[in-house]
């Protein structure tokens, strides 16, 4: 039985997810943008999911790293969604997806710079004050740095320190970034402020060339990412929830169950002496 591992709930699962016991997640994660102001069939489905599992959320459009002002009207709707569904965790991306008053609908890399640290930290604090909870910020994958003046890890640690937010420790993203930018992922983890880790994401990716991986969430997790996960959680002081993300090429539930069980096994091995988190 799962204690630590949840699954990203996809509409592609359909009713099979609820009608079978093949997947037994500790929680489910949804992107609030896909569910806010939604009624009818999908609201009914979400109600069934929420009756069975705790709900975590992973936002897409907050655009915390944007030069544009925060969209407080949107955040108000997110807050209402969080309250309505008794959401346990609200996480977002350390990136930007809106600029010059236009949504981009994907995650763009922020320049690793001191002024960006101050800008983003101030915004995170404002969002946390508004929501009355800490924001959990994800390390995103990126394919090129832009105008960087500091290292990625310095950038992330500085924001964690200045904003007092929490960290979504995305192990696949760290693996992808280390590969794409030619650094050692374990060394990166050593340098990261792990005291802020609240939540972990695990996913698959696609290697598109000899020197580039795209973070697709469309494949199974590969062995080196499992190894990095085991290494990473051995560095944590306490258990945290772990999510299996699968957004495309959704396989049969049995295949997802195999991945979840493998993650659960690693967690149990590492944290069996700890209390369960969900």
């Amino acid at each position: 039985m799962s204690k630590y591992v949840g699954i990203g709930y996809r509409k592609d699962f359909g009713s099979a997810f609820l009608e079978s016991d093949i997947l037994d997640p500790a929680f489910v994660e949804v992107a609030p943008e896909n569910w806010v102001d939604v009624g009818g069939y999908w609201k009914k489905e979400l109600s069934k999911v929420a009756n069975k599992f705790p709900i975590y959320t992973h936002g897409l459009s907050l655009s915390i790293g944007s030069p544009d002002p925060i969209d407080w009207g949107f955040l108000k709707r997110i807050k209402a969604f969080i309250q309505e569904w008794d959401v346990q965790v609200y996480s977002e991306h350390l990136s930007y997806s809106k600029c010059d008053n236009a949504h981009i609908y994907d995650l763009l890399p922020i320049p690793f710079r001191e002024d960006a640290v101050k800008h983003i930290s101030q915004r995170i604090k404002e969002v946390q004050d508004f929501l009355g909870r800490k924001l959990v910020i994800e390390i995103v994958s990126y394919y090129t740095p832009v105008a960087a003046e500091m290292s990625e890890v310095e950038f992330i640690n500085s924001i964690l320190k200045e904003s007092d937010c929490e960290l979504l420790f995305d192990i696949n993203n760290i693996y992808v970034n280390a590969f794409n930018h030619n650094y050692d992922p374990k060394q990166f983890i050593e340098q990261l402020d792990l005291s802020s880790v609240k939540y972990i994401h695990m996913a698959g990716h696609e290697k598109v060339s000899d020197d580039l991986i795209i973070d697709t969430h469309g494949q199974a997790i590969i062995d080196p990412v499992y190894d990095l996960f085991e290494h990473a959680i051995s560095k944590l002081n306490e258990p945290v929830p772990v999510l299996l993300e699968r957004d495309f090429n959704i396989p049969e539930m049995e295949e997802l169950a195999i991945e979840m069980n493998r993650l659960e096994g690693i967690c149990q091995k590492q944290w069996s002496h700890e209390s369960c988190i969900a």
Binding site: S66, P67, Y96, K98, D100, A102, P109, I110, P111, V146
Partner: peptide, 11 residues
């Protein structure tokens, strides 16, 4: 300059 870099990428 940071703002400009972000705007250029988004554009």
């Amino acid at each position: 300059d940071t703002l400009e870099q972000q705007r250029l990428l988004a554009k």
